[in-house]
Simulated scan of single mutants.
Amino acid sequence: MTAPTITPLPAAPVRSDAPADFATKADAFAAALANFVTETNESAAFVDERAADADSRATDADASADAAAQAATDAALARDAAQNVANFKGAWSALSGPLNLPATVLHAGQIWSLLNDLPDVTVSEPGVTGDWAVMGGIDASQTANFQASRNASYWLGSSLTVTLPDTTVAPPTGTFVRLTKALSAEPVIQAGAGPAVIQTRIGSDTSLTFDLNAEIVLIFNGTDWEV
């Protein structure tokens, strides 16, 4: 759409004009005012429309940028997933001998990525040594008493007892155990062998009852487990 134009107003009368010229200019100026107002309103409306168009285009551009960013994220996730599948070596417990980068394994319900070449994979347990980084993945479903592994997630299907990892030799600070449960279940979380206890906002103990319908994460702070 072509931008509307505003017709210039004729010369306005001034006091120094002769009476006849003053009257002629005043008549012409007054006669032009109505058209000037109309054209000015049309021009203002045109500017408003173009501003709305610009705002709409900016919104579309933002949406396109978000979509492009999401597509890039999805592509990166797909790439990582493809690499993990290509490098997947199976269950850690079934492996023996040397294991070199790149490699991923399944252990304690989690997918782990190898950080260092190993001369003997059996002496480097995921979640126990620093040779592995947890990649997430599967939650291990449990319905009977068990001892949790370090840096693993579990869904608790009954009112069982979960024993936390051994802290006789302190695990790395930040080691975690993530727990969710069935609505009707009230599992007991028990501190494992070693000096560590379980700290909460209301105190510390060697065990607690998991009776909240929420996910909880127990994190080793270097001394004890924090909820």
Results as ranks from 00 to 15, higher is better:
N100H: 12
P102M: 09
P102W: 15
A103D: 11
A103T: 06
L106P: 04
H107D: 09
G109A: 09
I111A: 11
W112H: 06
W112I: 06
S113F: 05
L114I: 12
L114S: 10
L114H: 09
N116L: 07
L118W: 04
L118P: 05
P119K: 11
D120E: 05
D120G: 06
V121I: 14
T122S: 15
E125A: 14
P126L: 09
T129D: 09
T129G: 15
G130S: 14
D131M: 01
D131N: 15
V134T: 14
M135C: 12
G136W: 14
G137N: 03
D139P: 07
A140M: 09
T143C: 07
A144Q: 15
N145D: 15
Q147V: 03
Q147L: 07
S149D: 10
R150L: 12
N151I: 04
A152V: 10
Y154P: 08
L156P: 01
L156H: 06
S158Q: 09
S158A: 15
S159E: 09
T163E: 14
L164G: 01
T167I: 04
T167K: 08
T167N: 11
T167D: 05
T168P: 04
A170C: 06
A170W: 00
A170N: 15
P172K: 11
P172W: 08
P172M: 00
P172L: 11
T173N: 13
T173F: 02
T173W: 00
T173K: 06
F176V: 01
V177K: 01
L179D: 07
A182L: 13
A182S: 12
L183D: 14
A185E: 13
P187M: 00
V188M: 05
V188P: 12
V188D: 00
Q190R: 15
A191I: 05
G192D: 01
G192N: 02
A193Q: 12
A193M: 10
A196F: 00
V197W: 00
V197P: 01
I202C: 03
G203W: 14
S204L: 13
T206A: 04
S207F: 12
S207W: 05
S207Y: 09
T209W: 14
F210A: 07
D211T: 11
